[in-house]
């Protein structure tokens, strides 16, 4: 189950980072930065909330 969760999270993070990249190219740096921060939060959250 842990692998499935991480796989799903990584998929969503890749998708979101792609969007962050497109925002960066549109000169919306704060927006891109927020998405990257949220992506990092999404990556570390399973460790604290699911695996523990």
């Amino acid at each position: 189950m842990t692998y499935t969760i991480y796989l799903a999270v990584i998929g969503v993070v890749i998708y979101s980072c792609g969007f962050a990249l497109s925002l960066w190219k549109q000169k919306n740096k704060p927006g891109a930065f927020v998405i990257v921060v949220l992506s990092v939060i999404a990556l570390v959250l399973p460790y604290f909330t699911y695996i523990k």
Binding site: V13, Y15, G31, L45, T49
Partner: peptide, 28 residues
């Protein structure tokens, strides 16, 4: 609201990311 604050016009692309965060926080 998130898109409004950070000037993200195509805010619907944020939905998968925030949903994952909601799930992971909700199961805590």
């Amino acid at each position: 609201l998130l898109g409004g604050i950070f000037k993200i016009r195509e805010f619907e692309y944020l939905i998968p990311l925030v949903t994952v965060i909601f799930i992971l926080l909700g199961i805590a």
